[in-house]
Design a protein around this nucleic acid. Structure first.
Lengths: 224, 224
DNA sequence: TAGATTGTTAATCGATTAACAATC
DNA sequence: TAGATTGTTAATCGATTAACAATC
């Protein structure tokens, strides 16, 4: 029998862990050192059982009647999410969005450090952007290999996304954070996290439209 | 009995619709005018049955053996997503991310027009940003009421998010696109679309870490 | 007609929620 | 001890996937 279990954590759980972390941090600052699932659930608007299951996924152990140790919980979450060992990332696309991502320094707290940006626009290449150098896109693969960069951030127009993703794969990048509204074709060994603003916006506007419509219907019914 | 059905479309379906739209657009440009679900599924890497269910949700009707009319499908998707009637939005937070969102003009294609930005920083107020004026945040509620703006985009630091959301609600805003890593407390009548970059990043880094770990284990086993 | 695709109903799968015994 | 909370098992719920009849 092997030592460690594979331990697959579901995407919804993974996405909730940072929220727990943030709340626990605020409690720790207030001097609290234990917390219960019902407590977290009430603060974050989540089902206490769901909170417990999520915490269980981190390997944390609590004490009945008391709760969980906040420092140990924070530690457990950070370990699971890999926030302890920072990994370096390359950013492709130094447009509006790319620049915003470069400028947002707090990703470092989540274990990600953007070390260089790449673009095809000669006007951008060579100039520093938020303290990082902008390099010609074609250099991405060899540099990724040389520096053992594992994470790529894709902030290029939809038309170019697949080609740039191919470059990243060529450079040995193993995880792509994709901001282009395109489903990428990559080898199975490469992880793609899709950050689809267009999809979110579509969901938002549709929900708003259907809500407003329902209200109009209800209003009409009332008049009738 | 009432005329129209409420018709609730699931979030996953809503998020896929823009992808279908994009693909259908490209087919239309190539002069194609019919398309089948297996066809779409193969192109986008989705199960054909899932594609069919999604299209069904838009009210589109196809012909057995032939497929769906591309123009009619495009029309159906645009109608369902509310891309025909553009709605105006206010942006709160003119920092890196806010500026990037302002600069990204293509949201208009998805029925959203950002008409003004708000901030508390005196250095930003009064200056135009990507062609839109930056106004003092405290003016948001009354202006939203006066202009009947229904959508708010929240791109402020986490600490300020709840307070700014409260201002939006006060101004009668009915849908909030939230880029802050915070769960907002809003009345039931207000829709919140959470765009949680921290959560996505957490999921990405965890998956990468656990994949790499699994490979190390496998390698070790091989050596043994 | 033959056969591919639609439309629809059933089965599967995974996540959330509920129930309850164990425990401090 | 009494009772709140953990840990765990079962039930529910919704989305995905499979199966199959209807149809052009």
């Amino acid at each position: 029998m092997s030592d460690a279990t594979p331990k697959v954590i579901s995407e919804p759980t993974l996405r909730r862990l940072p929220h727990y972390h943030r709340y626990l941090k605020s409690l720790a600052e207030q001097g609290r050192d234990v917390v219960s699932c019902p407590n977290i659930g009430a603060a974050l608007g989540l089902d206490p059982t769901q909170v417990r299951k999520d915490l269980e996924a981190t390997g944390a152990v609590g004490r009945p009647r008391v709760g969980y140790s906040i420092p140990r919980l924070l530690e457990a979450i950070e370990t699971v999410l890999g926030w302890n060992n920072v990994s370096q990332a390359f950013l492709a696309g130094a447009g509006h969005l790319g620049a915003a991502l470069l400028g947002y320094r707090r990703f470092a707290e989540s274990g990600l450090e953007i070390v260089a940006a790449f673009d095809t626009d000669p006007a951008k290449i060579g100039r520093p952007l938020h303290g990082r150098e902008v390099l010609p896109l074609e250099k991405l693969p060899q540099l990724a290999r040389r520096m053992h960069v594992m994470v790529g951030i894709l902030a290029v127009p939809a038309e170019a996304a697949q080609a740039v993703a191919d470059l990243m794969v060529e450079g040995g990048i193993r995880a792509i954070w994709n901001f282009a509204p395109v489903r990428l074709r990559v080898p199975e060994t490469v992880i793609v996290q899709h950050e689809d603003l267009h999809a979110s916006l579509a969901a938002l506007t549709q929900k708003l439209a259907s809500t407003l419509q329902a209200e109009v219907r209800k209003g009409a019914e009332h008049v009738r």
